[in-house]
Amino acid sequence: MKTKFNILTIALCCALSAISCKRDKKELGDRPSQTNGISGTWVLSRVDQIDVNVEVAFRESDTLLSVTEAILTGNPMEITFDKSSSNFTTKAGDGIEFFETTLGSWAFDNADYPSKVILNASQSNEATYNLVKPVRPQDSYLVLKYNKMCGNQRTVSYHLWYSRK
């Protein structure tokens, strides 16, 4: 009888603890807007160079090298994205050479799931930069990929890391 009572007590405790540990359901909430995320002023803070000629890479350093010290020797460039006007401006400084166009309009390739930032779309000075990682309102960095082309051949790429100002 005592044994049965013990088993019953243990089973009851397990049931109670299982109920008490059951997590509340959480809602995912709205997807963070990258249009809100990119809005604001960004300062170039790091530059990585990507070797596009490496066919087989065993380590990241085989294809990527920080070249910040060679690029950022003085005041770094800044770029500002305005979400309401969809315009961007730049402030001259180290790294501005990665921008053939220094002001105009900007847009994502896809407003909901952006992978590229397009500057001056459909104009003669249109320039496209890949988003290396998402840029949500809580993100501290905006990372753009600049592909240097020679004809239709990519000669080298740079990852431009911007810190939120």
């Binding site: 070797d51 090298l65 080298v156």
Partner: peptide, 20 residues
């Protein structure tokens, strides 16, 4: 060097690019 040579002694980049 970095970036690596594209051919035997030639880089794909030009002299306004970073070389290490």
């Amino acid at each position: 060097c970095f970036p690596n040579l594209k051919t035997k002694d030639t880089l794909s980049i030009n002299s306004s690019d970073v070389v290490t």
